[in-house]
């Protein structure tokens, strides 16, 4: 595949990610809308959300004006090395910014100057791996600042919360994060959680949970049970869409774990807004998309 084809396919991936929500997310929002009381602000908020999803797709325009941090995961086969991939992806990002699929969203943290093209130190955020597969797999997500800001990391034990170093303590932390977030992260939200790891790996793993589909089941039965319980309990707190009050506070909760050193016990909670923009594809060496991963 030549560089132009790779760039064009990546631009299409970015366009789709910014303008469409995955099917599992739309279904979860529809379920929430059916559940909310007739005539409530919560129901009307979710109606607007559903209208917005349709409009963004039909107009091929960003779901949300905050097109977020561009997070890119790719498994690269022998025919595509890292520099080739990164260059093509960056060119696709610049183009996507120019035509308005992406907002100018990369700001120099020292000077405050916007780079204007979404490139800069750490932007986009690449996570690249080699693969022995024949095809190239690329998954990406756009994570807005509002939801990123309400993420939280807990170091257990936490006497003030009554949270010890066990799964009960983990549950306490997660529910605390939900109450702290209220509507500020554009709920109904989805949580990605990592138990353990260090501060960096914990947050990273918590975000990688967002690549799971909302209706899957955790392979670890203990975590599957905890995920279900968190969603049910969070939805009984009355925070609701946008924090207006209501029965739909969380659309999902995905939990993973990493080993830790004996001295540390972190619970890292990432919050994703309802505008949960993730997509991905598999690309053959001839430049054809053989599969979209989240339809």
């Amino acid at each position: 595949m030549d560089a132009k084809t790779l760039e064009a396919q990546l631009l299409e991936l970015i366009r789709r990610t910014s303008t469409r929500l995955p099917g599992d997310v739309v279904r979860a929002i529809e379920k929430g809308w059916r559940r909310e009381a007739k005539g409530s602000i919560a129901k009307s908020a979710l109606r607007t959300v559903l209208d917005n999803i349709e409009l963004a797709r039909d107009k091929s325009q960003p779901m949300c004006q905050d097109t977020g941090t561009i997070i890119c995961y790719a498994d690269l086969p022998a025919w595509c090395d890292e520099p080739t991939f990164m260059k093509a992806y960056e060119r696709a990002v610049v183009k996507a910014t120019k035509v308005g699929y992406l907002r100018q969203n990369s700001v120099d943290s020292i000077t405050g100057k916007n780079s204007g093209d979404n490139l800069g130190p750490g932007n986009p955020a690449f996570h690249l791996h080699q693969t022995r597969q024949k095809s190239l797999t690329c998954r990406m997500m756009l994570k807005g600042g509002g939801c990123e800001n309400v993420g939280a990391q807990y170091s257990l034990p936490r006497a003030d919360l009554g949270a010890g170093r066990d799964l009960a303590g983990v549950r306490t932390c997660i529910l605390d994060a939900v109450v702290q977030a209220q509507g500020k992260g554009c709920g109904p939200g989805i949580l990605g959680v990592c138990i353990g790891g260090d501060r960096g790996s914990g947050y990273l793993a918590s975000k990688e949970e967002f690549f799971r589909e909302l209706d899957d089941t955790n392979e670890d039965p203990r975590l599957a049970k905890l995920e279900k319980r968190i969603v049910k309990e969070a939805n009984s707190l009355g925070i609701g869409p946008m924090g207006f009050g209501g029965a739909t506070t969380l659309l999902g909760c995905k939990i993973t774990h990493r080993n830790r050193v004996p001295a540390s016990f972190f619970v890292s909670v990432s919050y994703m807004c309802w505008a949960f923009r993730r997509d991905g594809f598999r690309l053959s060496e001839s430049g054809k998309v053989t599969r979209w991963l989240y339809d």
Partner: peptide, 28 residues
């Protein structure tokens, strides 16, 4: 409604001006 960028953009019927674009950049 947070995130409802399209529904809300449709209700912006005209852009009548822009200020401090140079200093702060487009989003700000």
């Amino acid at each position: 409604i947070g995130g409802a960028a399209q529904v809300l953009a449709e209700r912006v019927v005209a852009v009548e001006g822009v200020h401090m674009m140079e200093e702060f950049g487009s989003p700000e």
